[in-house]
Amino acid sequence: MKTRRLTTSVIQMVTLSAVTAVLLFPLLLTLLTSLKPAEEIITTAPALFPRHWTLDNYRTLFALRDFPRYLWNSLLVASLTAAATTVIAAMAAYALVWMRFPGKRAMGRSVFFTYMFPDILLVIPLFMVCYELALLDTRTALVLTYLSLSLPFGIWLLKSYFESIPVSILEAARLDGCSEFQCLWKVVLPVAMPAVAAVAVLTFVMGWSEYLYANTLITTNANRTIAIGLQTLAGYHRTDYGLLAAAGIVMVAPVVVFFLAVQKYLVEGLAFSTTKRPE
């Protein structure tokens, strides 16, 4: 019995390690490339690890006039998208699950309507809308566009989670003197932290790395996000791959940091016992 369990564990570990290695290899390759001097990157005898470790690519990257600006724009757009999505989706999901209003069911379903169209189909209409609203080439346009993409997902995820919270907890909160907003803020959100964290992480990543809309709606260098900025590093005749790799790593870093920060909530509490356990 014990041997079998050990064998299963070993097989699981080996399989998971193999999958992880395949998934992480491009990232590792990028990281190592970013730490190599140029002559070690374009060479007839490429090696995985740099012979001369260097941070020159990063120095060059941050010396570029626009690069910090791209980073800042991305951070701003992604954070605002994540924050707004979480707040709006939480309120919408709360209303859809626990409040009574006419057209509730229809509204709940129409939330998914935007998912019926492929992104590329929405590019031109959204461009027109932003043009009419004089929002072209603004970060506001990006945040609003991302919200229209992230909200259906956020609402759906939070709604499913909220539905698993016993309604008696909310009723207890109402009897304890909470308004609907306080019920959401003081009781529902803390209990639904894993789902809230998931929505925040996923919308942040989406806003951080989105390319299609950012490339269409933003036209000047000042408002570019890092996903678009990265493309400007690829030259027409010659590309500095070390620089590009460094930029890639810098782009991934905040996402990893953000994920690590909320990982605790994602994992913890999924098995949260809310009211009673069978004795």
Binding site: P166, S168, I169, E171, A172, A173, L175, D176, G177, C178, Q182, K186, V187, P190, V191, M193, F272, S273, T274, T275, K276
Partner: peptide, 26 residues
């Protein structure tokens, strides 16, 4: 009025103290 629910409906993210104090705090 105060109600005791069949499933107790305690707030899972609060300690026992906070659970008891919540209504007064509100």
């Amino acid at each position: 009025i105060a109600m005791v629910f069949q499933d107790y409906a305690l707030y899972p993210h609060m300690t026992v103290y906070e659970n008891i104090a919540f209504g007064l705090r509100m």
